[in-house]
């Protein structure tokens, strides 16, 4: 794998109606990683997200309709491939990921193709309770088995992808529910990519906390299970051309 120092890094921030936070996050990212490109993918926001991001100095790709995180991230990966970036780091635009830790993720790419910033790995105090937590534990267990390494947080949106993963994800990145987390990881593993995690601390969400009624948690569990099953039985999209390139 190439030296980290010679790699061109692109920070991709998928953003949906984040006009409050996006400017601060972009500014912080540019301060901590002045050499990296910053792309905000505005996922069909109805507010001034694009404008704020551009004012803060980011490149903005605005999706005309809402495609979800999967669509936003594939746009980011395609931009990376078209503009010669080797590494893509996904950072949420709501400010819950700490840009100071991006460099740790990128360093982790020395020995892996995908590095996940994991929330439950003993750093920080992020907690999820009840059925949602169980769902995360089950998913983490199954995907850890597949990846042959211990992964504790497979639904994290704080991820770095190395050159091989960028090529693969630019071609195929699922847009379905949880496709950006579970299915993309399963795809990466089945495509022969190496997935690792490093512990990260989460910052408090600037907005509200996600609602957690038992019914919603149960629905989440069911949908996550279905997403995982589908990811496991689906035919793998061909990545031969990506490998050859």
């Amino acid at each position: 794998m190439a030296e980290v120092a010679t790699r061109r890094v692109l920070i991709v921030l998928p953003a949906l109606n984040e006009e409050q936070n996006v400017a601060a996050v972009v500014t912080h990212v540019r301060e901590t990683l002045p050499e990296a490109g910053v792309l905000v993918v505005d996922d069909g926001s109805s507010d001034a997200t694009s404008l704020r991001a551009r004012e803060a100095g980011a490149t903005v790709a605005r999706l005309a309709v809402n495609l979800g995180v999967g669509g936003a991230m594939r746009t980011g990966y395609r931009y990376a491939v078209a503009n010669g970036y080797d590494v893509v780091v996904q950072v949420d635009a709501d400010g819950q990921h700490d840009p100071d830790q991006v460099r740790e993720l990128i360093d982790g790419l020395d020995s892996a193709d995908v590095v996940i910033g994991a929330r439950f790995a003993g750093r920080g105090d992020y907690k999820a309770g009840g059925p949602r937590r169980w769902a995360m534990v089950v998913l983490a267990f199954v995907i850890s088995r597949l990846a042959r390494t211990k992964l504790t947080d497979v639904t994290s949106g704080f991820k770095a992808a190395g050159p091989r993963a960028v090529k693969m994800f630019a071609q195929y990145y699922p847009a379905e529910y949880l496709g950006d987390t579970i299915e993309s990881l399963v795809l990466a593993i089945r495509g022969g990519l190496v997935v690792r995690q490093i512990p990260v601390a989460m910052r408090e969400r600037s907005g509200g906390t996600p609602s957690q009624t038992p019914i919603r948690a149960a629905v989440y569990l069911a949908r996550a299970g279905l997403a995982l099953l589908l990811a496991l039985v689906r035919r793998r999209p061909s990545v031969e051309s990506a490998d050859a390139a």
Partner: peptide
């Protein structure tokens, strides 16, 4: 849906390119 998604992504990237 998949075709629309690809088209929307391409448009976003083209707009990006156009601005630059």
């Amino acid at each position: 849906e998949e075709e629309t998604r690809t088209a929307v992504e391409e448009i976003a990237l083209l707009r990006c390119e156009l601005e630059r």
